[in-house]
Design a protein around this nucleic acid. Structure first.
Length: 170
DNA sequence: AGCAAGATCGGT
DNA sequence: CCGATCTTGCTG
């Protein structure tokens, strides 16, 4: 039925491979009777406990434990008192990595796209390979991939702040 | 129990 | 540039 749905093998690779590969793919969210299907246009990679910008930099907590699972799960968290951030867990188990979805076609901004798609806490831990309400579908990459530094993580220090781990379509 | 900070956004 | 708004994790 959903032959184009991406499966586990896509997500269990290193986050620095998965993040750019997600560009052009479609995030699908089922709402009531309709399906919202949006092309991913901008993402950021967060990679392991060494990465001071990654939520796992201080070890496993009640908030981030899903990042320690193998790739393919959804990690959502609430920030600034009003926005939900949508992330895709990547890599093998016990290596905390995730891709933040920063923009999709039509909705630029990680807080705005979750509001539009209706993503909230209830999506925490959803399995993209099996979930009936959220998954990722194959899609062509139109344009080329550009990189840049990650946004809003100045607290992580010069080195991590300047990793070119934001990827977007131009 | 209290507090400071935050992977944002929209209005000055 | 600044405030909104509240969960989380750390400190005591």
């Amino acid at each position: 039925m959903n032959s184009a749905r991406l499966t586990g093998g896509f997500f269990t690779r290193d986050v620095l491979e998965v993040a750019p590969d997600l560009l052009g793919k479609n995030i699908v969210v089922k709402k009531k009777d309709a399906e919202a299907r949006c092309r991913i246009t901008e993402v950021e990679a967060y990679r392991g406990e060494d990465d001071l910008a990654c939520h796992a930099s201080k070890g496993k907590t009640a908030r981030n434990y899903i990042m320690y699972e193998h790739g393919g799960f959804i990690y959502v968290y609430f920030i600034y008192g009003m926005y939900w951030m949508l992330n895709v867990v990547t890599g093998p188990a016990a290596e905390p990595q995730a891709v933040l979805i920063r923009a999709v076609e039509g909705f630029a901004g990680p807080g705005k796209l979750t509001r539009e798609l209706g993503i909230d806490r209830s999506f925490y831990g959803e399995n993209l390979e099996k979930s009936a309400r959220i998954w990722v579908e194959e899609g062509p990459l139109q344009g080329s991939v550009a990189t840049g530094h990650r946004i809003g993580i100045d607290y992580a220090g010069e080195y991590w702040m300047t990793r070119p781990w934001r990827y977007f379509i131009v």
